[in-house]
Write a protein that binds this DNA or RNA. Sequence first.
DNA 1: GGCCAGGCCCCAG
DNA 2: CTGGGGCATGGC
Length: 253
Amino acid sequence: MITPIHLDSTLFSGQTFAWVKQNGVYEAVVDKNLVSFSEESFDSMLEKHAALRRYFDMDWEYGKAEAYLASLDVHLARAIKTCKGLHILNQDPWEVLMAFLLSQNNNIKRIRSMYERLSKELGSHVEGSWYAFPRPQELLGISERDLRSLGMGFRAPYLLDAIQNHEVLSGIPGLNDDEALRALQTIRGVGAKVASCVLAFAYHRQQAFPLDTWMLKVMKKHYPGRDASYFAPYAALAQQYLFHYERTQGGLP
DNA sequence: GGCCAGGCCCCAG
DNA sequence: CTGGGGCATGGC
């Protein structure tokens, strides 16, 4: 049983800020290459760029996970029915860390524009108006002042600390979930929520469960007294469905 | 033109 | 250890 990926839910559910959709064409820089496709050309694009199968997480057990989560309760069943095919991407850990440092006390629209600004001002040129998000090595000489002048505000020192301690990321694969959360939170500005996003969206940890303002609302309304263990072993996917459903459909009853 | 945003830090109690 | 104020900025 293969359930097709749902591109809009996957690329515009707030797990990535890299993608643009214009006239039916999806575009982003992934791993220093401009990736461009439409709904119709997605499959052939994947054949041409085999490495992107992993990025789009095409070989994981989505059919099984969707069926299991939908069987848990009616709210989850509705969320899954509405945006079925939502995949959790395997993104670059560094980019996810930086993006979600930008996310605090912020809105998605502005997170995107700040992410783009860092790419354009500090990243390497790819083609046309496209730039790669800067690697930590490209940012070593930068100052808090520079970052503030780029509009990063109070997050500037957090970004700076992430730049200086980016090596924490290389150790994450060898750690269990709790250890990984603690390791990530040694970076200034990284709390439980940001750390969970990094684990879910970059390391494919299925029990990572980012609790933001939207999810707290969902949990209070539909899952009082519950926590991530209720959704095991698919908490991360459940979170992403519930978050996206709450934001796009207003959560409904 | 205020209001507010995918949190976290810091400091009181 | 829990709670609440403050934070830079810009989109609405």
